[in-house]
Write a protein that binds this DNA or RNA. Sequence first.
DNA 1: TATGAATGAGAGTTCATTCAT
DNA 2: TATGAATGAACTCTCATTCAT
Lengths: 198, 198, 198, 198
Amino acid sequence: MPKIVDYDARRKDIADKTVSVLVRDGFRELKLGKVAALCGIGRTTIYQYFRNVGQIIDYALADVFKRLDAEIAAAAADVTLAPSGKLLRVMEFLERVAILDKERMILVLDFLLHPKREVPGVEFDVQEHVRALRVGLERVLRAGVDSGELRPMDAKSMAFTLFSFVEAATVHSALYDNISLDTTLRDLRILLDGLKAS
Amino acid sequence: MPKIVDYDARRKDIADKTVSVLVRDGFRELKLGKVAALCGIGRTTIYQYFRNVGQIIDYALADVFKRLDAEIAAAAADVTLAPSGKLLRVMEFLERVAILDKERMILVLDFLLHPKREVPGVEFDVQEHVRALRVGLERVLRAGVDSGELRPMDAKSMAFTLFSFVEAATVHSALYDNISLDTTLRDLRILLDGLKAS
Amino acid sequence: MPKIVDYDARRKDIADKTVSVLVRDGFRELKLGKVAALCGIGRTTIYQYFRNVGQIIDYALADVFKRLDAEIAAAAADVTLAPSGKLLRVMEFLERVAILDKERMILVLDFLLHPKREVPGVEFDVQEHVRALRVGLERVLRAGVDSGELRPMDAKSMAFTLFSFVEAATVHSALYDNISLDTTLRDLRILLDGLKAS
Amino acid sequence: MPKIVDYDARRKDIADKTVSVLVRDGFRELKLGKVAALCGIGRTTIYQYFRNVGQIIDYALADVFKRLDAEIAAAAADVTLAPSGKLLRVMEFLERVAILDKERMILVLDFLLHPKREVPGVEFDVQEHVRALRVGLERVLRAGVDSGELRPMDAKSMAFTLFSFVEAATVHSALYDNISLDTTLRDLRILLDGLKAS
DNA sequence: TATGAATGAGAGTTCATTCAT
DNA sequence: TATGAATGAACTCTCATTCAT
């Protein structure tokens, strides 16, 4: 019987290291050799796990959005929460990711800034997935407005604005290592409080 | 003096086209061949105007910041304006650039997101220049607070926040072609009004 | 103005050397490095003249058949020759090529033996071109039979058989360097004489 | 003794499939992965049976010639046959192989056309073995001439010519699937009849 | 025995850059 | 000045082969 290796764990490791190199050095400097070295494996071993560079990025992107999608869905389905509570939960989660998992979020931002795909072979449609996320936010907002818990507003536009907040947090955590999650979350709560019907 | 005009015009053209390719296709797809084709010149002719790829980007970045620096300096030096007026002028300018000259601003954002330089050979320090810009903003804010025109605030933090606004505008204009400059500026004015001492 | 190089001459040189390497060492040992070395140029310079390996082979094959086609057409159109004369001219030409330009003919034979294309990217359809050549031979044979100059025969089958003669000559000149063109041609003439109506 | 039977059977299977891939797709497309897939075994299992690719080809070539050598030897030793009978038996056998076992014969032809060995590591000397075969033919011819059964001839040259017949049959069966063995053998018999002393 | 894991060697190919006109 | 020619460096990816179970 062959060597026993945790296939999925290694896939994840390769994808993580790829994102790291990508974010630290930029797309132009993404060399599989660097990734392999970081993983402690041979350069060609990567091809046991991914067909090509594009597939690694695809995996990383799908992985990010799987978590984001799941959280939004979970919040939406949480019957113990009023719309404002759902909103807070989702936004806190996004901020948390933007600050704690900043490399992945920068990757997402890269693809938003360069729609024509940074790397040939990447099939994942970041733009579309972000749009879907925003629609999820919108739905929560609208539910709050309908129930009278949130003040009347243009839900679409507000979803947009709330997303800006996440983007800004991503940019800032890229720029400054010491962004405080607590402070950011406090600011967020104040902002969201303002959305409640008086 | 036709030659000199031609020379500088072509340098600018090459840099502009480079930024276009970069932003549209991503750094990884930046090929001098594409740039030359867009400029309608031979591939190697580029080397008559720039020593290498890094120098083209350097030129483009320097060009952006020359305008930004100049505007901030001009606003600061404008004796006809009160601090709040200077602030408005600077911020309006930045928003305008973010929306109307979005490719250049995306380039700047790219370098902010990837500090280790997207292209080897680029010497221009974007981080440092952005910091300088923010310090300029801070100075205006502090002057306003000191003169009593603006309400007391943490100027440093506020400069930071105001910059977020510009970054968000850049991301959004990358994402959506039809960002309205007017709406954005109106929102900006409301926001800045809130900074005035009552 | 750029370096002056005889573009077509170099293309031909590259194709010739490619065929040489191919025939001497086999398809598996066709390495562009070897070809480039034989041409006295850098490995990557080849890509100035051909898009990829397949294109080189395509060029070589097209080149062979251009000559073969031209000769068959010329013989067919030669009004000074009776059918038996045309037949002799064509067959002598084919034998001559098989012996004097044996590398190119071995290349053709390779593709006949391995219909699924030896090299990915080769588009030239050798089987079809050989078929066309045989049809040309057939036409000449039929004209001779119709005019009464040649004895009645199954033209299709005879064209086939005459081709075997060329193939055998190719194989033999591959095997033995000292195949005598004169002897082969003499045998050929005797053979073709037998086709004449008594 | 199931294991030993299995072992040899699998060696043969691997060699057969290797030849198939080789002949169908060309040497350049010979990948052990394809062979393993055709055999229904894992890619690396092949190394339980052969040390490397060259050894597989060696085995296949040796296998072909073992049969050819044996048949020639058997015919030569067959005291019930006159030289012309031996000749017929050998030639019929060769034709039969050329048509019924065409893949193996194409393999042989490949090595004749590319003396420098198609695959590095192959040690089997095809040229030499074919030469030996021809010498065997020659011996039979000479015996016939000496006994007066066959008409006087240059045995060496005639052995050569008879081989051409086999080569042509191989090329043709590669080209056209529906080569008729019966027709070919009938033609062969007529041809060989012509060698008999009147 | 059988085979997944792992990898070094090496191929084709691309491209920024230099050369030469 | 402008640019085709030329190429070295470097990258992605393939594959035979070895390792370890």
